[in-house]
Write a protein that binds this DNA or RNA. Structure first.
Lengths: 190, 190, 190, 190
DNA sequence: CATGAATGAGGTTTCATTCAT
DNA sequence: AATGAATGAAACCTCATTCAT
């Protein structure tokens, strides 16, 4: 096992256990064991258990960002760009359900510091640009940008929750289209 | 202090502390102290800390239900009924922010048992009725009922987040109307 | 249930639970529940849990005494009298195994006070008399009386253990005779 | 203090306290303190308080076995061999009274598991051989082997109890000889 | 006499973190 | 960089006992 592997193994084990058992339900010893690493090693890479979960939070935010931005600049108008974001996030649900569950559990948790939360937010600044542009082009409702942002993010997480509960619907293109249209109806200008 | 008071005091103290510090961040000793009750008394009413949070979850679900259903039958068509629900829940946000925060924190938590979750769901069967009826009357989109439910619930929490950041807007009827319209656009049949 | 019944019910429940789970393994609440009595009632009859087990100890010593002394005065010489004691105690093993187990568990336990132990001893003074008399008549070995007592008591518990493992032998008069002879050989003067 | 020392210190402290105060009368904190070790260390070596007492039980059984077998093969006939066992066990009383007391207290205790008890029994299989040989040589009564085993073991423990209560007699060779003769009379063929 | 809700000290066990190797 | 034995504070929960009814 290479050196930098260990850090990754620890993060991966932590993701598994935190989503399954919660933050305090998971001991650092359990994480170390699952990562096949000594406890001391865990504390070599992360000074604190809190540090570990905060690092994990950012790590997943970054992974999410690179998924969402992939192919985004090839999309033309705002509807297509928002559709691209939405499609990417649905694909994320299929491929990395644990990462979704992680945000469902720790999105509002006091274990994630305010600083981390703000840092995570910065990785999503690009969505503000999409919205501002949409409003300028007259495609989005004339609502405050941060409210539209809220709407977009929360509709993504509704979609995620729904597919999380109904994994069988995830490959039905008709359902997917109708879900997207509903969300789009919420923010588009009529 | 009357006998049944103690149970209520414990639940209230638990609500405060769980929302502030999380489940494991709150000790049973701290709850008992805040409730002005001996630790043993806490365990007299709730066999387990997990039992306590599950009882609390149900308690708040029930409170929420009675708020949401108040005046609901006086509303006419589906738009009015959903408007009534939305207005009630905005009022809930203002009056009982801790209860909202509780669900944000523990809605997906492994500390709430599946059995409790299902029991809690039953108290909201009436919303399913509202949705089903709306779909029959052709006022709501032809989407799965629980997806519409997700949309409604998550749009509520977006609303909360927004009003939390902009408390000055909470009494502006124009903003409120436009927000409601956007949400309504998401679920109404065009 | 009559008043004095409750005391008896409590003692009986305590006997069951103490022998099964040990002194500290048994809670006063559990005893009260098994006795079908309120906790307060238990403490009405026995000021303390220690008081309860001490009372139980004496109670069983007394029951044991009346079993052992039954028919004892009709026996002639020391061998017959010791035989009578041995037969009675084999019958005791069959009929009240929990009482035997109680002494196996608490005979040396620090939960029984020295005072109680001495009081219990007094109920068995008659065995000392049997032994003293046997020594005077030259039928028993010239060993310290309390050693002979030890031998007699421990040979009883060996007998018990053996019959517990081989319940089919318990009604075989030949086996019983040979066991008694061996024990008698130990203490008789040659 | 060396690493393996700590385990031993804990066992030794546990032996002292359990025999003095009983199982539940002794807290793990007290054991750790007496062993000059942190509580966590105790639980590092023994997962459970029950594990600890079971380990202690086996440890003492093993120590007892090596005492009893010492010099056993140099003894000639069965009387000498049994005498050797008896003498060793009397010496054990003088040297390790706490270990004797431990078995007096916990020999029948529900805190010792059946599995542990059986494992402990295996260390005493060699006594069966002594008995079988004695029966073949016509020196022992024609009683079931396991009954003779019971008799031998319980007479050893009677002896121990007696000397435990009368430590002053332990150096009187005359008393010792007469006690041994009595026990030998019980099992020898006449 | 009888009840059982209420108490809070104290018990066992867990676990994040350290540090000598 | 990596290890894992050692730590001890603190957590959850139990339970003997009291007392107002």
């Amino acid at each position: 096992m290479q050196t930098s592997d260990k850090r990754t193994h620890i993060l991966e084990a932590a993701l598994d256990l935190f989503t399954e058992l919660g933050f305090h339900g998971t001991s650092t010893a359990a994480i170390a064991k699952k990562a096949d690493v000594a406890v001391g090693t865990l504390f070599h890479y992360f000074a604190t258990k809190e540090d570990l979960i905060n690092a994990l939070y950012l790590e997943i935010k970054i992974r999410m960002r690179s998924r969402l931005t992939a192919g985004l600049d090839r999309a033309g108008n705002t509807e297509e760009r928002f559709g691209c974001l939405w499609t990417s996030s649905v694909r994320w649900i299929q491929e990395k359900p644990r990462e979704i569950q992680f945000f469902r559990l720790f999105g509002a948790s006091p274990n994630i510091s305010q600083a981390t939360r703000e840092q995570g937010m910065q990785h999503f600044a690009f969505i503000f640009d999409v919205i501002e542009q949409g409003k300028k082009q007259g495609m989005l409702k004339d609502l405050p940008t941060d409210l539209l942002m809220e709407f977009m993010m929360s509709s993504l997480s509704s979609t995620q929750s729904y597919f999380f509960e109904h994994p069988d619907h995830i490959h039905d293109p008709d359902v997917k289209r109708r879900i997207f249209e509903a969300i789009w109806d919420m923010i588009r200008k009529k």
